[in-house]
């Protein structure tokens, strides 16, 4: 999923959108009692899937700090509204200065790009492509770890789950693999917290089992009894030096009013 940032994206706009749409991770509520027994690998994967499901309505502020060996450092900041049920979204950039106030509005097949300095809405009705790029809606589908991956089993057909400490945090470490087509990383190593199974670190590995990238879940918060990974980082292990940090703040799940998804509102937000 986060591999996207490492790909050549010919256009900055879809890159931004892609990142936003795949970045909000929400954990469902869990009972506070800690788990005494080792969970099954399947349960861990299920938990991660559940956590990656986007809620119906999300409003949040997303900050992305990106370091690319070649392109240097970029910081982007935006406000993001998404209505899961209708596939509508509105994104307003708040940083950097050159992008500030620019926005994107999507409803049905229509997509508008708002440029603050000219106050124009450019209407784009090209089917399935966003801003003429290769990005399309299928890119935003969340992975289903539970269906895609299988855990390693020992000779007794028991799941191999290591109990380790990730730093000071007691964690379970599991190795999973997939032989299904279209699963980008056929091998993963996952660390989850022992107490609530929230993922802490995921290593994405290639078919030949070499490390491609590592995803760190740096900070979780609990909002409305839901766990949210409010800070994440992805390190590119294949091409060392590329790093991306996401931070989500000001998150709400309250239903978003339809008036948000209008040109008028975007213009009002922007300038």
């Amino acid at each position: 999923m986060n591999d996207k940032t490492n790909y050549p994206v010919s256009n900055n706009r879809p890159l931004t959108i892609t990142i936003f749409l795949t970045t909000i991770l929400i954990a469902s509520s869990l009972s506070a009692t800690s788990l005494k027994l080792k969970p099954s690998i399947n349960k861990i994967l299920k938990k991660i899937d559940k956590q990656q499901t986007i809620e119906k309505d999300v409003t949040a502020k997303v900050t992305i700090l990106q370091q690319d060996i070649e392109q240097g450092i970029k910081q982007m900041e935006s406000i993001y509204f998404a209505k899961g049920s209708t596939d509508q979204f509105l994104i307003v950039m708040t940083a950097p200065e050159s992008e500030k106030g620019n926005g994107y509005l999507k409803a049905d097949d229509h997509f508008w790009m708002y440029r603050r300095n000219t106050r124009t809405f450019q209407h784009i009705s090209r089917d399935e492509s966003i801003a003429g790029s290769d990005a399309n809606t299928s890119d935003f589908e969340t992975p289903k770890y539970e269906l895609q991956y299988k855990g390693k089993k020992d000779s007794d057909n028991e799941d191999i789950i290591q109990t380790v400490n990730l730093g000071k945090i007691p964690a379970y470490k599991i190795d999973v693999s997939s032989d299904l087509p279209n699963v980008a990383y056929p091998n993963l190593t996952i660390w989850v917290r022992q107490d609530n199974l929230l993922p802490l670190k995921i290593q994405n590995k290639s078919y030949s089992n070499s490390l491609i990238s590592t995803q760190y879940f740096l900070k979780y918060s609990k909002i409305n009894d839901k766990f949210i990974a409010i800070k994440q980082m992805v390190i590119d292990n294949f091409e060392k030096g590329n790093k991306t940090v996401w931070e989500i703040t000001d998150i709400t799940f309250s239903p978003i009013d339809n008036h948000i998804f209008t040109k008028a509102y975007l213009e009002n937000l922007s300038n």
């Binding site: 409003t59 760190y216 609990k222 000001d250 709400t252 799940f253």
Partner: peptide, 21 residues
């Protein structure tokens, strides 16, 4: 990233009540 910086504590925060902007 030798594991120390992952924040173990999970604080409960309130969702922002008013709209962001």
């Amino acid at each position: 990233f030798e594991n120390e910086t992952i924040d173990m504590t999970i604080e409960t925060i309130q969702p922002s009540t008013t709209s962001l902007i």
